[in-house]
């Protein structure tokens, strides 16, 4: 099963490598990982999407929590949450048919075209991972995907409760 974990940790050199090292050392899976400082610059927030059964997840949470740099860890997928991922994709748009079609699909998915070249469109799309998958699939039926990059997902719990130090 897919789980999304939010981790608050000290924004110190080596802290990220400890997390990544832990996952490889203990043969845990990383589907995606994103990291950036929070509004408090001394703290970074990592979002990890991982796959594993309950037993593996329990170990992941405990092992991450055991790292000295880690302040808090919380699983987002066991409650209501908002999850977003950013996609930038460069597609072939060399004739008017493909340009029209790409524009139409982009509008339907509520993406936006952020750059135009002679032969290409660059599109930005935000959403949960499934929406991004669907968009790429739809696009690839219409035109050639030249390059794509995804940010990996970030997430936050719904409601009043906040994850803060």
């Amino acid at each position: 099963m897919r789980h999304i974990l939010a981790i608050l940790l000290e924004n110190e050199p080596g802290a990220l490598s400890r997390i990544v090292g832990l996952f490889s050392q203990r043969a845990f899976n990383i589907e995606s990982l994103t990291v950036a400082p929070t509004d408090d610059n001394s703290i970074s927030r990592i979002t990890i999407a991982t796959i594993g059964n309950d037993r593996v997840l329990e170990q992941i949470v405990k092992q991450v929590n055991k790292l000295v740099d880690v302040i808090k860890i919380s699983e987002l997928t066991d409650r209501k949450h908002v999850e977003r991922e950013l996609l930038l994709v460069k597609v072939a748009a060399s004739n008017s048919k493909s340009r029209t079609e790409v524009k139409r699909i982009t509008d339907i998915f509520r993406g936006s075209i952020v750059d135009i070249g002679k032969q290409i469109y660059t599109i930005e799309l935000t959403g949960n991972s499934e929406k991004l998958n669907a968009f790429i699939e739809t696009l690839s039926n219409e035109t050639e995907i030249i390059e794509s990059v995804r940010s990996g997902c970030v997430g936050i719990a719904r409601g009043e409760k906040a994850m803060r130090v």
């Binding site: 050199p13 080596g14 490598s17 400890r18 090292g21 050392q25 000295v68 740099d69």
Partner: peptide, 9 residues
């Protein structure tokens, strides 16, 4: 890294 409790640079 995998064999320590913590480390400092």
């Amino acid at each position: 890294r995998p064999i320590i409790k913590h480390s400092f640079n």
